[in-house]
Simulated scan of single mutants.
Amino acid sequence: MTPASLPSAFDPYCGAPPVPGELLAAWNGDPVLAAALFLAATAGFWLLRGVGEGGARLWHAGAMLALVAAFLSPLCALSSALFSARVVHHLLLIAVAAPMLALAFPKRRPGGTALLSLLVAVHLAAVWFWHAPQPYEAALSGDVTYWTMELTLLVSGVLLWRELTAPAAPVGRVLMAHLTLIVQMGLLGALITFATEPLYAPHFLTTVPYGLSALDDQQLAGLIMWVPAILPYLLAALLALDGVIRDGFGQKGQAV
C-alpha cells in the first residue's frame, strides 16, 4: 500500500483502493499473473498456427488484451475503489474476452437445447451470485475467493459463448438464449440502480475521492450493467437474425 492509498477493512487482490492522483501508476505487478497471461497468449497462438487467414488469431489477441486491461492495467486497482469499475472489469471478462475466446476457439457443432439452457442458467447464476453483496464482500476479502469469482465468470462465459456461436446452432434457440441474458442482466442492473441505500461494504469509504458517494457509484454500476452490458448480446442476436434473413433471400434468389 502506498502512503496515498485509501484505508480499507478489506484486502482485495487488486490492492488498496488508490486515490485519483496515483491511479495511472497503479499497474498490477503480480509476476505470477503476468506470466500466466503470457503463457496463455503464447499457447493460444501456437494452437492457432496455420488456422485460416488469421481471424482466429485476431480474436485471441483481442481476448488477451481484454484480460490484460482487466487484470494488469490500473482498472484492476480502480475496481478496489469503485464498484462501477468492478462492473466494467467483469464486463471485460464476460462480454468481451469470453466471446472473443469463443470465436478464436469455436465449437464445431451445437450441443442441443438442454446444454444451451444449462449454460445460460449456470452463467446467470454466477453473475447474480457474485454481484450479491455478501459473496462480493467475500471475494474482496481473500485471493482464493476472488479468483473463484473471476474464473467462474470467465469460464462460464466462454462455454456459453462457444455454444451461442457454434455453426448451425438453431437460430430460435440462440435468440431465446440472448433474450434471456438481456432480460436477466437488465433486471440485475435495475435492482442495483434503484436500491435506496449502498449495498457493497468494500466501497462505503472509497468512492469520495472520485467525487461520488457510495450510492452514486452503485447507481452508476447498475446503469452500466443495465445498458452497455446487454449490447454484446443484442448485437450477437441481431447478427444471427441477419444471417437467417440473408440465407432466406439467397435461397429465394436461387429458386428464381
Rank of each mutant, 00 (worst) to 15 (best):
M1A: 15
M1G: 14
S5I: 05
P7A: 06
S8Y: 02
C14L: 01
P20Y: 08
A25M: 11
W27E: 00
D30G: 01
P31F: 01
V32D: 07
F38E: 13
G44H: 08
R49C: 10
V51E: 14
G54C: 08
G55H: 10
A56S: 12
R57Q: 13
R57E: 12
W59D: 12
G62K: 10
M64Y: 02
A69S: 07
L72K: 04
S73Y: 04
C76V: 01
L78H: 00
A85R: 01
H90N: 14
H90P: 02
L93C: 11
A95T: 13
P99F: 05
A104D: 04
P110W: 12
P110A: 11
G111E: 14
A114V: 10
L118T: 01
L124M: 15
L124K: 04
V127H: 09
H131T: 09
Q134D: 14
D143N: 13
Y146H: 15
Y146N: 05
M149C: 14
L151D: 09
T152K: 03
L154D: 04
S156E: 00
S156F: 00
G157N: 02
L160P: 00
W161P: 00
R162Y: 12
T165L: 13
P170Y: 03
V171P: 02
R173W: 09
R173C: 06
L181K: 01
M185P: 04
M185R: 05
G186Y: 08
G189N: 04
F194H: 10
T196P: 07
L199Q: 15
A201L: 11
P202T: 04
H203E: 03
T207F: 03
T207E: 07
V208S: 12
G211Q: 06
G211R: 03
L212S: 08
A214F: 05
D216N: 14
D217E: 11
Q218Y: 10
G222K: 02
G222I: 07
P228M: 06
A229K: 05
Y233R: 05
L235Q: 12
L238W: 09
D242K: 12
V244Y: 09
K252T: 10
